[in-house]
């Protein structure tokens, strides 16, 4: 447990110091959302309907940014081999990395999402759903993302391949995440948030083991 906390604290420190990825992902997230009205026009009614979906898609894309470096930096300088020898085990490393990634990207994205929703004219009644869906859904993005990052670990240009592997798998999270927001805009009850919670719970539970298996195969031989 102490080893996991140490790893987590180190990752957070690296991300928040100069050149870290935490602020960059946020800026990217805001930039993508800002670009949207230029593409589809500024009709407030239209923006209100697409706000949830746009914020969700932008959040997923922003999550991709730092993902390829999640294990790669430690893999390249040999730290991962040392971590593997620690009492954490690969599952522990994976879990700590997933939590770190969520704290660095998922949580800040969730916090500034209402601000961007304001720009997109999201109706006030949909704010709780937006916050809740991001809070529940973004950990699943980090969890599935860490598995994909571990699979592409030894590939030199892994950052290019990673989105292709990950994005189709994230379709359900986006569908139910954005669906939960849209339900509040349209004032209907569709249960999307519960499906999102179920998918998120299963993904978070399984992904440390899948990530660990992927790390193991990359460090063997």
């Amino acid at each position: 447990m102490r080893a996991a906390a140490a790893l987590l604290a180190r990752d957070l420190r690296i991300a928040t110091r100069a050149g870290g990825s935490a602020v960059l992902a946020l800026a990217f997230f805001a930039a993508v959302v800002t670009l949207l009205p230029f593409g589809i026009g500024s009709d407030p009614k239209l923006l209100a309907r697409v706000a949830g979906g746009v914020i969700w898609v932008a959040a997923v894309l922003a999550n991709l940014l730092g993902l390829d470096r999640l294990f790669q930096a430690d893999y390249e300088d040999g730290n991962l081999d040392l971590l593997a020898l620690s009492p954490l085990g690969f599952e522990g490393i994976a879990a700590a990395k997933i939590v770190a990634h969520w704290l660095i990207t998922g949580l800040p994205l969730t916090v500034i999402a209402p601000l961007l929703a304001l720009l997109l004219n999201l109706p006030p009644s949909a704010y709780p759903a937006l916050l809740l869906s991001l809070l529940i859904g973004t950990p699943a993005v980090s969890a599935l993302g860490s598995a994909a990052a571990a699979l592409t670990l030894s590939i030199r240009r892994g950052g290019l391949l990673l989105p292709l592997l990950l994005l189709p798998l994230l379709a359900p999270v986006v569908i139910f995440g954005a669906g939960a927001v849209l339900a509040q805009v349209d004032r209907v009850e569709n249960g999307a948030i519960w499906f999102l919670a179920a998918i998120s719970a299963v993904t978070i539970l399984l992904s440390p083991f899948v990530t660990a298996a992927a790390l193991r195969l990359n460090l063997s031989d």
């Binding site: 592409t152 030894s154 590939i155 240009r157 379709a171 499906f195 899948v210 992927a214 031989d221």
Partner: peptide, 30 residues
């Protein structure tokens, strides 16, 4: 993308299994 054949096979196998678990969820959600 992975040059080492054994490693590529294992990584791809893990990916195929993740996909297999996800396919019913994708199907349902869509």
């Amino acid at each position: 993308a992975i040059e080492n054949e054994v490693r590529a096979a294992r990584a791809a196998a893990v990916l195929a299994l993740i996909g297999a678990v996800n396919l019913p969820i994708i199907e349902f959600s869509v």
